[in-house]
Amino acid sequence: MKTLEVSVVTPSGPVLEGSFDMVVCKAETGEIGILPGHIPLVAPLQISAVRLKTGSETKQLAVNGGFMEVKPDKVTILAQSAEKASEIDIQRAKSAKERAERRLQAKQDNIDKIRAELALKRATNRLNIGS
């Protein structure tokens, strides 16, 4: 059976390279599953989990936005940061979540609010995948 080459690249270097049967991720427009032979596609991603499937095994990655580029035999995910489930620092994500929640409750001006919301999203995403 054909497989997909997947590489996840961030500014601090490649996070993951490997071949998988299927890639499932959340694009801005909704969840999208990619099998080998997909038409070339570019789509921005949400702060979410990327699931990589081989046989019955599923691997999860936390990506913070970015976008993906799909070619028939290759998927490249470019994000500002991405972590494997095992690399997530749960303690840090927890404190980031609390901090973001405190900021949201404090109700400051708009820019802070957007940033806090993003931070909260990132932290929750990490926690979901990490634990």
Partner: peptide, 23 residues
């Protein structure tokens, strides 16, 4: 490459270009 764009090119550029400049 002839890509499909989801949702469309303009919106992708919206996300992509700032990220590109930052990078």
């Amino acid at each position: 490459n002839d890509y499909e764009y989801d949702p469309d090119q303009e919106q992708i550029l919206e996300v992509l270009l700032p990220q590109y400049a930052e990078s």
